[in-house]
Design a protein around this nucleic acid. Structure first.
Lengths: 231, 231
DNA sequence: TATAATCATTGACATATATCAATGAAGTGT
DNA sequence: ACACTTCATTGATATATGTCAATGATTATA
């Protein structure tokens, strides 16, 4: 546990402030700033655990985190959270429980803000509330894509989707440095680790993908898109 | 098409008003009442289609509707919508597009309200906004349950979950009258129609379920719960 | 450096599940 | 009452995918 709080300047000056805060006034930002903690996590450390009370909203300021549901014997990764994005589970507005777990995939830092403050701002600032609802809506759309991929595509299509997710949404690069494990890849794609590895191997053999250590390179984007489409 | 509008008294007096409206003032209700349409759908009729512009929020006042994503060759039913519940897709706050389709499963009636009015109320009434966020959160939790059931349980567990969903959440009865087709049951459970039928047959043979015409009766709730748990 | 521990890879095998095809049942319109 | 369409059921078969077990590779630790 390397969880000692590190205090940065303040939210108003923060260069890695989540875009959700753009509709806040200086006073509102200061409100957030006052009740906020900055914490460092080592890779692998759990940020919070499914089933525990959820008291804070977490903004990832560096590194990479995963949020995942601990299901029946295996995990389903709902999303990877990169800087500067935040984690705000659906339980906050229901029963203040976490409905998924979160952990650091890479060494990470994060700001924690009390959800009471967040909810207060939602009530008092309509722009903020609307931005928040937009964000919730986007998450829902993402969930829809994921559930369709997981339930209606075969493994090749699901791995293709996962690779595009990593390349386009998370690492934002094409030869990209894979910082998640094969197990994580499998947990994103809803299959066993062995199956995920096998698909990667096939992609390599077909010249669609090259893997050099942790460096992944999608060589034939068009063909991989095709595989994603045809399931 | 039996889509002729039927005008009821008004929202303030409406006995089948969705609970989301409870935080609205009389004037706000009147605002909704003014721009509202009451429509009747026959079973099977489409209310709106995935990909089309979404302009109205739909409150189901009688009958039963389904919302479903048209995926790769087959549909996934996200939820059944019974009175008095409403349909408000995530696209409304993103790009005003429908990200799923909706259709009437039984003969149904519904009230349509312009989403512009709805969004205006979200901005002006904090209680209403908070109720709406709660509702979105509940939907997300439901999505989580569904995706875990669909991706981590085998067919028996998924059918068990679907049967409990129908009995406990939709029909709210135990011997219940099944108004959805086997194909719909399969589309809820993420499997082929034939597989769904086979599982039902097995449940019948094991005395867990009785099916008499459209009357379904879960005879051994405990065992079915067990099947749901063990996947 | 040695040792343990985790992670990645591969093969063999069992099985859950979809697909295809045929048939029966039930409702619908003429 | 009739043909006709949709829906439900069943069986046979192919295959996608998970599980188990073994091994290699890499990293952490003493």
């Amino acid at each position: 546990m390397n969880g000692k709080p590190v205090f940065f300047s303040n939210c108003a000056d923060c260069s890695c402030k989540s875009s959700i805060f753009k509709s806040l006034t200086a006073e509102e930002l200061e409100l957030i700033n006052k009740g906020r903690f900055h914490v460092a996590y080592k890779a692998g450390e759990i940020m919070f655990k499914q089933g525990t009370p959820s008291s804070h909203f977490i903004c990832v300021t560096s590194g990479l985190a995963k949020i995942y549901i601990e299901g029946y014997g295996k995990n389903l990764i709902l999303a990877l959270i990169k800087p500067v994005d935040y984690i705000f589970g659906p339980g906050v507005y229901i029963d203040n429980k976490h409905y998924y777990s979160a952990s650091a995939v890479e060494d990470s830092t994060a700001c924690l803000v009390d959800t009471i403050i967040f909810k207060k701002l939602v009530r008092s600032n309509a722009d903020f509330a609307e931005d928040f609802i937009k964000r919730l809506s986007n998450q829902t759309l993402f969930n829809f894509e994921q559930v369709i991929s997981l339930t209606q595509k075969q493994m090749h299509g699901r791995i293709a989707d996962a690779l595009f997710y990593l390349s386009e949404k998370i690492y934002c690069a094409n030869p990209f440095n894979m910082t998640i494990s094969r197990q994580d890849l499998a947990d994103i794609s809803g299959m066993s680790k062995e199956s995920a590895i096998r698909i990667l191997k096939e992609f390599k053999e077909e010249g669609i993908l090259s893997v050099d250590g942790n460096l992944f390179d999608i060589l034939n984007i068009k063909q991989l898109k095709q595989i994603s489409e045809t399931g």
